[in-house]
Simulated scan of single mutants.
Amino acid sequence: MRRMAALLAAAAVFGTGTACGIADAGENSVTGKDALVIGVNADQPGLGERRGDGSYQGFDVDIATEIAVRLGVARADVTFKKVTSATREKMIQDGDVDLVVASYSVTPERKVKVAFAGPYYVAHQDILVRQSDAGKIRGIDDLKGRRLCEVPGSVSFPRVHDEQGVAALPVEADGYAGCLTDLTDGALDAVSTDDLILAGLAAKASGSGRRLTIVNAPFTDEPYGVGIRKGDVEGCEAVNKAITEMYQDGAAQRLLGKWFRPAGLKVATTVPQFEGCV
């Protein structure tokens, strides 16, 4: 019924001589869909991780589900699809996914290609090291000359090397699961990315008897936005409303506690300042 209403509304606008682009934007908005395909990470424990049965779990997955339900889509009609740091923008632009909820930091460069609702959380970039190296790496300056994981498409390594001017040595990995393996195996000295990702990696390593620690020296703000097709202002505003409701009724705080308090990470529990739907 919602899809039919959206089509009728679009037809009415077209009939009055309004530009086709406006009608097309309303017709394709996520608010007019009875099912949603949402892009999530598959290799970030605690945020987005694919399990052996093919299903996904994590904070981002739960946030995505909550948003979909509040948009009027049944849980059974939500499909998750794997995205990576390198593929997120193209998958939104090509229509492979309707939304992306994947530790997706809002940046000016990304906003040229896609739009963002939210953010639904503001993380902070920090550093993860082996516990035995905690005394040697206490902050970002200590990464000079050390092997640091680099994930293609992620802004985390450039934040250290380019923005902060720290001459860390890049060691490329396909994703943060690869970074974790390299760190525990001794092929890396550190992993630097958002603290929520680091908390999930540390928790997974501890389950295998590997002792890792977060340095607790944050040096950036990383607003996690919901990626959405450019031009879908109606959808963006609807997602923002859903996020606001989640903080008002305690759903966001519950999910943050579920996924990150066991790792000892202190999380913010107030609704972030939205970027604006333009």
Rank of each mutant, 00 (worst) to 15 (best):
R110W: 04
L201W: 00
R138I: 09
A117M: 06
L212F: 02
D194T: 01
P119G: 06
S156R: 05
L183M: 07
G153W: 05
G207I: 12
L143W: 06
V191D: 07
A167E: 15
G153A: 04
A102D: 00
V215F: 01
G209L: 07
A115H: 11
A117F: 04
E150Y: 14
G135F: 02
L188G: 07
V114W: 03
E172V: 15
A115K: 01
D142R: 12
K113E: 04
V215D: 04
K204I: 05
G186Q: 14
G135C: 04
S192F: 10
K111T: 14
C149A: 14
I140T: 03
A203E: 14
I127N: 08
A203V: 02
D142N: 09
Y120T: 01
Y120G: 01
V97Q: 06
G186R: 10
R210Y: 14
P119E: 00
T193A: 02
G118H: 06
L196T: 02
L201I: 08
G95Q: 00
T107Q: 04
V97R: 01
D126K: 09
V101Q: 00
D189R: 09
R146M: 13
V155M: 14
H124N: 09
R211E: 13
L196D: 05
Y104V: 06
F116W: 10
I127L: 00
A117G: 06
S206H: 10
D142F: 03
A202Y: 04
V191H: 01
D185N: 08
I214G: 06
G186E: 09
D142E: 05
V191F: 01
I197W: 00
V129Q: 08
L180I: 07
D185H: 13
R88W: 02
A177K: 14
V122P: 08
G175E: 08
A117R: 06
F157L: 13
P158R: 12
R210S: 15
D142M: 00
Q164A: 15
D98K: 08
I137G: 03
Y176L: 13
E172F: 11
A202T: 06
S105I: 13
P108A: 11
E109R: 15
V122F: 12
G145A: 05
E172P: 09
Y104D: 15
Q131T: 08
Y104E: 05
A86W: 00
F116A: 03
R147A: 02
R159D: 15
P152L: 07
I127V: 09
L169W: 12
Q131G: 09
T193R: 03
A199G: 05
T184L: 07
Y176S: 13
T193N: 10
K144I: 07
D185I: 09
E89Q: 15
R130P: 09
R210E: 15
P152F: 07
T184N: 11
F157S: 14
L212W: 02
A102M: 02
D185A: 15
D174E: 14
S156M: 08
L201V: 10
V112S: 13
V129W: 00
